[in-house]
Deep mutational scan, measured.
Amino acid sequence: GQVNVNNTTYTFPTPKLAKEFAQKAAKKYNLTVHVSGNTVTVK
């Protein structure tokens, strides 16, 4: 799974890890998680 945070893309071996990372990043920066297919964007 891929996660985009502040124009930086992070790649994870599983969608589960990507989702967990996205949720932590969203909480940390007070942003929202947007899911589109296999790509998760935090903005």
Rank of each mutant, 00 (worst) to 15 (best):
G1F: 10
G1H: 12
Q2A: 12
Q2V: 12
Q2G: 11
Q2D: 11
Q2K: 10
V3D: 11
V3M: 11
V3N: 11
V3Q: 11
V3K: 07
N4V: 12
N4F: 10
N4D: 10
N4P: 11
V5F: 13
V5Q: 11
V5E: 11
V5M: 12
N6A: 12
N6K: 14
N6E: 10
N6H: 15
N7E: 15
N7P: 10
N7G: 14
N7I: 15
T8R: 15
T8P: 05
T8D: 06
T8F: 15
T8Y: 15
T9G: 03
T9F: 07
T9I: 13
Y10A: 01
Y10Q: 01
Y10T: 02
Y10K: 02
Y10G: 00
T11N: 05
T11K: 07
T11E: 05
F12P: 00
F12A: 01
F12V: 00
P13Q: 09
P13E: 08
P13R: 11
T14P: 01
T14D: 05
T14M: 02
T14I: 02
T14W: 03
P15G: 06
P15V: 13
K16E: 14
K16I: 08
L17D: 07
L17A: 12
L17W: 04
L17G: 04
L17R: 06
A18Q: 00
A18P: 00
A18V: 01
A18L: 02
A18M: 01
A18C: 02
A18E: 00
K19G: 04
K19R: 14
K19W: 15
K19Q: 13
K19F: 12
K19N: 09
E20A: 14
E20R: 14
A22W: 02
A22M: 03
A22L: 02
A22D: 00
A22H: 01
A22F: 02
A22E: 02
Q23R: 15
Q23D: 10
K24N: 07
K24P: 00
A25I: 15
A25K: 04
A25T: 10
A25L: 15
A26M: 13
A26T: 08
A26K: 13
A26N: 05
A26F: 09
K27M: 09
K28M: 11
K28A: 06
Y29T: 05
Y29L: 06
Y29F: 08
Y29R: 05
Y29S: 05
N30Y: 09
L31E: 03
L31M: 08
T32W: 07
T32F: 06
T32Y: 06
T32R: 06
V33G: 01
V33R: 00
V33A: 05
V33P: 03
V35W: 07
V35D: 01
V35Q: 05
V35I: 09
V35S: 02
S36Y: 09
S36E: 12
S36D: 11
S36I: 11
S36A: 09
G37W: 04
G37C: 03
G37A: 04
N38K: 08
N38P: 03
N38W: 03
T39R: 08
T39H: 05
T39A: 05
T39Q: 08
T39M: 08
T39G: 02
V40R: 00
V40C: 00
V40I: 04
V40D: 00
V40P: 00
V42R: 01
V42Y: 03
V42L: 09
V42T: 03
V42I: 14
V42E: 00
V42M: 05
K43F: 15
K43Q: 14
K43G: 07
K43N: 09
K43E: 13
